[in-house]
Nucleic acid binder design. Sequence first.
DNA 1: TCTGGGGTCCTAGGACCC
DNA 2: TCTGGGGTCCTAGGACCC
Length: 417
Amino acid sequence: MSNKWVGLLDCNNFFVSCERLFRPELEGKPVLVLSSNDGCVVARSQEVKDIGVPMGVPYFQIKDIIKNEGITAFSSHFALYRDVSRRVFSVMSEELGGIQQYSIDEAFFLLDCHPEEIASHLRKIIAKKVGIPVSIGLSQTRTRAKYANMLAKKAKGIKLLSEQEWSFLAPKIPLAQIWGVGGKMEIKYKNHNLLTAYDLMSADPQQVRTLFGLMGLRLRDELKGVPVSTGVKKSDTQHTILNSRSFKKPTEELAVLADAIAYHLRHAAASMRAKSLETRSIRVFIRPSRHSDFVLQGGSKEIVLTQYTRDTVELSRLAKRALEQVYRPRVPYKQAGVVLGNLRPVGVNQPDLFSLPKDKNSDRLMKVLDNINAGKEGKDLLTVGSRLKQSEWQAKSDNRSPAYTTKWSDILTVKSQ
DNA sequence: TCTGGGGTCCTAGGACCC
DNA sequence: TCTGGGGTCCTAGGACCC
């Protein structure tokens, strides 16, 4: 272990910052971003946090506050956020070499020396080249760096958390504030009298293993300063691609579900091909509302293929079959989705002894399909699988910002004088 | 009326085998 | 009246994250 520091760079209020990039007059003003369907709040500017709007609160509950406080609310616009994200990480990679992207707005990295100088340089160059404010936490493991990052947000954007300072803080840090400890685990730890980071660090490892499983043991190591995943390398390809959406209103009809599933399958498969991946398993799930009496009536069905595929037609057939197996009449479903799993990069060819030869025409057909649909985001002109006349399950986004960076027609025009 | 979507990793329990 | 035990593999679901 030659690397002394594990760093975590995190974009501040990322979605809000993305929207502000193209609406600079909103700097210093309260801004929030809603989830798709305009369902609930997923990003808040500092001003909105100060007003007291909580994360994840349903939109309909705060409509009055938004109006009274003069908050600007955006529908989420993922094409924009993904694009800005790509820019941030490409600057980071240029500066540091290897990074490990963790989410749309966070990445880990390793440093041997000069952590503060490098962190400060990173912040400046990202602000200059992309225009997004970021915070950086540095410590000995990813879990500690994550905590350092939280402190950085309250400080001036950078926090170096040394071994000494960690030892001093650990007895005062509630486990709930530690990365990886959610509501359920917090209660479980509490039940065994483990309340702080220090408590878990000093607990008996054998006991931790039996009571809290592998996750508990790893968390204990990370808190003690022993990194669990060896470093920050990894060229890891994605394991799953998921496509799902909640319905405008619940449905009990198989035909409507089939339409939604077919839609999600087309998009998941196209996204998979765009990433040059192929799949060997498909899962279909349908669920009632999380807030209804039917919560437990949902289900999922996975079909494992004998051979990798990228073919929308083949996958559509399987998706339909899986759906018919999980579907139950008289359940008000509120969400449907498709997961493609067991992904691998195309071209890693290990032909299966027992599988049939591949249909050569399939790849060509899919290419034609993808080309026709390319650039028509959300249009879905040429489709495979069921398609209802009126997609009654789809919802809309009312306050979406223009596609400043991903659609020619929405690019800003700069005028002199 | 209205409560997101896209990921990761782990584990309980059933099927199957000897 | 009695019903093995242990291993592996797979699936569905849970917990967590942003």
